[in-house]
Design a protein around this nucleic acid. Structure first.
Lengths: 207, 207, 207, 207
DNA sequence: TATGAATGAGCCTTCATTCAT
DNA sequence: TATGAATGAAGGCTCATTCAT
């Protein structure tokens, strides 16, 4: 890979990163391409050399962010592959990991962007379907299905179980963090995780 | 109250309504004051005669919408004041009512607006605190506390119970409605309500 | 007519005039709407309040200029309505008047504009047909036809006669004025008029 | 001449040709150097390696086009060197040849370009003086002078005669072709030639 | 030499806001 | 009070031109 190619790729990445940063900070309409260029350390036309449009730039930036966000969250489910004896504790650990990821400011910004622009960018729905909560739900349901086969969970409906697990941790998070504006303390996150797993366990875990 | 005053008030209301409609449709930045004036059936300067700013207009429009939204949702909790014998059924009814309210397109638009502009309008936080989920949580917790006193629920923590109740119905709603873009069928809402109450009951209802 | 209406009309006229001036000086593409606004003594958005587009502005400005240009030139034909005894002298007078009009710098600019932009603004052709040389030819042919009926000209083809009359005065003008860049002295104009009429007379005038 | 030199010259010619093509199609300002490079089959910086400027490129392209245009038109005068018995017929032939050259689309485009940019490129005047109508007039006047010496034309003023000859053929052409936008049929060109020569003959030819 | 990539400057257009009536 | 008209400021996008290879 020649150094020029590297440079070009680097610049493209810098533009995408800068774009997300600025979009996250200012919203789509309020963000200026000028600002993005500045943030990325390039000149304005360079942005247009890589992306045809402000809209296209937005889509790509958001897609990239959504991708990495999904990857991280799916990775956080790993412990469920080898739960050990204390299933509740494992669930709590996973819940806490997810909570931490969901309080990341970049992720909060991503959610805000998706919410605000989903009406103007219909094709953002594709991104949501591809890298959104649904996908995490699926991955989690897979893990839970295995646990059900292993006799550790009620066997009925892993998709529903996953949905409720996520709802029980993310719902309170949303409410308490004031739509992502307040940073929650680690202790509070732990409380959310614990109470969520408690309720989840009563409904789904085989004791 | 003289007729001119009446007319003035009517006009103010028309402006606020039109503003919310347009903001909901286009977002804060993309909405033009011109559009709002058109929607309200007045001339542009008239808008400025009533509201100093586009920002102020936004705040007032959003606040009004949030107020009525909260009122409706609190009203939906009424059946819990007289639950009858089948508590689960009552909870399910309330859940369903809340789900219906939360699929209303104006309410979805309100949420979108709050999400997108919360970073630019710090004082929107006040609106959220005053008329947001917290308030509904409180109201619901009050009801649950009474049920706990009446021995129908575990007595520990009504706030937590309310939080989880709401999480169990709104979380899945969010996920399945694709951030409010898809309209869910009544049957699916009923399913969400039933499964949510089932899990909630296992954790909190005294059988 | 209220003073405000007057003011609006004045401003519109000022914009059209300014637009033509600037377009004439710089050409369509090189002319900035900014410059036009400055020339008209208004702010840039005011221009857009009156004309939707830079292109529309151009069309209207050009059309107005073409209209007045045609009016002036047709008016210059008036003496042919009452030629008197010395027809050649009358023709020379008309020729000279037309030559003077055609050396007007605004008219030269108009021709330049029409030439340069006719490929980009296909509907400019309509303006040319409506207010261009054809029209002058027609009007002149009418006059010549009457003279023919009166036995002062050969009767064959007034349209052709008009065409050649105009060609004999405008052709040399074009050539000698270096495409309108050089201002010709009155004496030279007179020479052109005289020689043109001489040749024209040999072919068409009944001696 | 080495092959690389050949290639270089070829490339230069390709650039000049492409430039004229694009300038003719889009006008000076609307033509992009990018477009020109594309048309010439080279990369954009290559254009700058051969020509310092867009302006310089324009001047050279226009000059080349004007040169070949003048050559063709002067060549069309050749029959006047040996007019034969029927001078009128010879004149008509020359007139027709000139008319055909003047309806060529590249030549029309050249005229359009000269007209539009003559105000912005003062040195284009030099091109006009060097290769423009004046030169054709001169060449034609030379031929006519010889004919005058030979007693076939009135002897007074060959320059004027040439001027009127050209005016009588080019003026009607301009008018009828709607500034070069309409293609005239061969028959109409012949009519123009015939009527022009008729009138010219009455004034200048010794019968 | 020829080119892919980058840039500084500029332009058309829009919008929130204010005057004058 | 309500409105037609005007404006200052800003933003998206393009282009001629130049590096660096």
């Amino acid at each position: 890979m020649s150094s020029t190619t590297r440079g070009r790729i680097d610049k493209r990445q810098a533009i995408l990163d800068g774009a997300f940063t600025v979009f996250a900070r200012q919203g789509y309409a309020q963000a200026g391409v000028q600002d993005i260029a500045l943030e990325a350390g390039v000149a304005k036309p360079t942005v247009y050399n890589h992306m045809t449009d402000k809209a296209t730039l937005f889509r790509h930036a958001v897609e990239a962010a959504a991708m990495t966000a999904l990857d991280q969250r799916v990775a956080a489910l790993a412990p469920l592959g080898d739960p050990g004896d204390d299933l509740a504790a494992t669930l709590e650990g996973v819940a806490l990991a997810l909570l931490r990821l969901h309080t990341d400011s970049r992720y909060c910004a991503l959610r805000r962007l998706l919410y605000s622009e989903i009406t103007h960018f219909p094709d953002i729905l594709d991104i949501v379907k591809e890298y959104g909560l649904d996908r995490l739900n699926h991955a989690l349901a897979d893990r839970l299905a295995r646990l059900a086969l292993a006799g550790r969970l009620r066997t009925t409906d892993p998709d529903l179980a996953a949905e409720q697990f996520l709802a029980l941790i993310l719902g309170p998070l949303e409410a308490r963090s004031q739509m992502g504006t307040r940073q929650l303390e680690e202790a509070e996150l732990a409380t959310i995780a614990r109470t969520a797993v408690e309720t989840f366990a009563r409904a789904w875990v085989v004791s």
